[in-house]
Each structure stands twice: as structure tokens, then as C-alpha cells.
Design a protein around this nucleic acid. Structure first.
Lengths: 216, 216
DNA sequence: TCCTTCATGTTAACAGTTCTTACTTCATAC
DNA sequence: GTATGAAGTAAGAACTGTTAACATGAAGGA
């Protein structure tokens, strides 16, 4: 669906499935997209994968373990997208930074199930070291980009630490990504697209930082 | 818990409960706080209210109807808090505006169940007119405050429409409120409190607007 | 004062669904 | 040709939402 290499989706050549683990993760994603992170069932994921209800237990200890795997792979993919968008700050830090913002929304829109497993499923990072590693990688991308943007500001300007700036940007991105979707409480009052809302917001924030001249 | 008048919580003087509807809503809030919006059960809410599993159907058509009521009353309360914090723009629009931001976080922290029913439960505003009314009231508070702040900006500055500004502020507030809590993926990297993160973010945004002098 | 009415409870049951385990069977790699 | 990993089958125990039929008791009119 998003990967270049084909998944052999639901293709089994015999008794053994072959790649049940990946297929279960993908099935879980489909279900989460429909019913939300708490509403998906291990049994139904198995059914969707064309396999018995007990089969998943060969690959996942728990229902929660599958959910965690969805979140983990989501963070991995998320991090890749952000890093790619940042592209080392090319062509310019500011331009690259807005690209990161766009990439954030693109990911949230293209993989809503991953996104909600990552941020709305109530998983704790402390429960799984692998999850923490993947999450940290994504945040590191945001933080290093923020840091580099800040350093382009004139010395006279107020320069908050890169950590803080990345939290600001992250918050606004997350807010835009989760609030303004179909049917959500705040929808309808926005004649603009998510991308436009976030981009104008980031631009104003960057002006406040002094990174962008105020009269632009 | 948050109201001045006592609820007669779980007090029944006979066969009839007296105020079962309110008590069920409050019970649902407790459960949602523990298990999330999708994880609460009508049966368990009834049990918590000290009443049979069928009793709630006298007051709510559905499981979802109860969830909707949690969200609706949440929005009502939310709107009140925001309006109170804004206080007509006193003592100054900027000060009042940061008060609104603080009130936003206070509400999300004090009533996490309401908040998640309002924004993370996947309820559609279109399904219930009453829900829409309550939600609109909250957003109106945010929008009128934004509008008034914008009008204090010098004419030379870029002045986005109040609608757009309120979406920016709402996004950042929602992001801060939902991202940086105990155990959440992004927690731990923040040596600052939610309030500090949001306040510094809003201040930088307002500088970008030209509402606050840049060298402050 | 009594008797009816009716909103509000209760009990009981149906029809699903889920998670999870124990044991069995298959097919592949060594 | 067998060890082993990966599926299937079956079953238990627990929930759930929801409905139907019955019980209660407070309010108000006769």
C-alpha cells in the first residue's frame, strides 16, 4: 500500500502463511482506520488475514503487542518521511522546514491508522524499548531541523532552545492533523486546507522568531 | 467533582434513583478516564452507578448517546471556562488571551475524559444538533478572542482573518494538551510544563502577528 | 382517601463477540 | 526422515449491547 515491495497480500501457498506477521500488522491498520485503536480486535485481524483466531499468538504475545508493532512501524516510517522532507536543510532551512510540516500532514493523512496508534492509542513508550527508539528517531528529526532553523536567526532576536521550538511546531502540526478532518467537531469552519492552515501558522511563528522578516 | 451542587452520588432513597442520568454521565467520565472513549461500557457505567444493566436505556437510546452526552456537557463546560478566562478582554486583550490558553490546558487536565470524548472519540458533529451547538459555542469563544487580539495590531502588520488565527491557536493548544502527558510518546524530552510550552509558543506567534513588539 | 397512570427501575434472556489456552496437524529445513 | 516452527481446531470463560416483560412508587385527579 505504501511500500515498494509487494506484500503477497493474503496469498498463501499451502498450510503456512509465509509472512503472517506483516499481514497482521497491515490488517490491524485497516481495522484501526475504521474503528479506532481501541476498537480493533485481534480475532478480526486474524480473520481479515484469512487465518484462524489463534494464529496471531505465534507472532504476538498480546493484542497490545500487535498494536505496539503498528505504532512502532508507524514511527519508523514517519521518521523516514520527515528526514526525507528535511533533506539536510536543502534548498534552504526555511523552505526545508515547511516541507517537513507538509510531510507531517501527508503522513497523518495517508496513514491515519498508524498515526492514531502512535498518538491516540494510549500506549506508553516505557512499556516497549523498541517503540521508544522508533519514536525518538522521529522526534530527533524534528528537533535537529528546528535547531538548524533557529541558528539562521539574527543574534539580536529571541532564540528559544531548539527543543522548545520543536515542541511548538510539533504541537501545532499535531493539532492541525487531528482536529480538522471530516466530521470532526471543528470542521466546516475552515475554508482552508490543512496544509494551508499549518503553513500560515508556521510562517507566523517563524516571523515571531525573527527568522523571517516581518514585512513579508 | 467540579460542580457546586452535590450530585447525590450513588445515593438512592428507594426504588427510583432520582438523578440517574447525571450519575451515568459522571460514571462514564470515570470509565473513559481509565480505559479511553472506545473502552468504556454501558453495562459497567450502570454497575458503577449502582443500577442494573438495562436501566440506562430509559435515559439513553444507545451506548453512543451516552458518549455524546459526555461530549456535549464537556463542550458546555469548556465554553464557560474559556469565556470566563477571556473576561471580555480584560485587563488587556493580550493578557486575557494568554489566560484563555491557560484555561484551555486547565480544562484538558482537569477533565481528561470530557476532553477525549470531545475530540478523540470519533463522534461526528453532524449526528447530533445539540452537540454541534455546544461545540460551536466553545469555538466562538476562541474566535472572538482571536478577532479582538488581531485588531490591536498595527495596520501595517500582516493581519490574518480571525478565523484563521483561532485555528492556529486552537491547533497549538490541542497539540500541547494531548501530546505532553504522562507516558505519552513525546514526554520526557520536555523539562517544561505544558503551560510554559503553550505560553511561549503563543507569545512567539503573537510576535509574528506584530501584536507584541519583537524585542520583548 | 383511594385508585389510576406512567416514568423509572429490575430480572432474565438472546445473540454476539472477544481473548486465550491446550492439543493436534501440517510442511519444511536440516 | 525427523525436529521444529507455524498453522488449525476446539473450547472455556468472560464480556457486551439490547430487548421484552414485569415491578415499583410518586403524582395527581376523583
Amino acid at each position: 500500500m505504501k511500500d515498494s515491495k509487494p506484500h503477497n497480500w493474503r496469498r498463501r501457498r499451502g498450510y503456512h502463511h509465509g509472512n503472517l506477521k506483516e499481514v497482521l500488522v497491515e490488517a490491524a491498520r485497516q481495522l484501526i482506520e475504521q474503528r479506532g485503536p481501541e476498537g480493533f480486535s485481534l480475532t478480526e485481524a486474524a480473520r481479515l488475514a484469512g487465518v484462524s483466531a489463534a494464529a496471531p499468538y505465534r507472532h504476538f504475545r498480546d493484542r497490545e503487542a500487535l498494536l505496539t508493532e503498528v505504532a512502532r512501524t508507524g514511527f519508523e516510517h514517519f521518521a523516514s518521511q520527515l528526514e526525507m522532507a528535511w533533506d539536510g536543510g536543502r534548498p534552504s532551512p526555511i523552505k526545508a522546514f515547511t516541507n517537513v510540516g507538509r510531510a507531517y500532514l501527508t503522513f497523518a493523512g495517508a496513514e491515519p491508522a498508524s498515526y492514531s496508534a502512535m498518538f491516540e492509542a494510549g500506549l506508553s513508550v516505557e512499556d516497549s524499548p523498541e517503540l521508544k527508539v522508533a519514536a525518538d528517531r522521529a522526534f530527533a528529526a524534528l528537533r535537529s531541523a528546528s535547531q538548524m532553523v533557529i541558528e539562521t536567526a539574527p543574534k539580536s532576536a529571541t532564540r528559544p532552545p531548539g527543543d522548545l521550538m520543536s515542541l511548538h511546531i510539533w504541537s501545532m502540526s499535531h493539532g492541525v492533523a487531528t482536529l480538522f478532518s471530516k466530521g470532526k467537531p471543528g470542521c466546516g469552519k475552515a475554508p482552508l486546507s490543512n496544509e494551508e492552515i499549518l503553513e500560515t501558522g508556521i510562517l507566523l511563528y517563524l516571523k515571531g522568531l525573527g527568522v523571517i522578516p516581518a514585512d513579508q
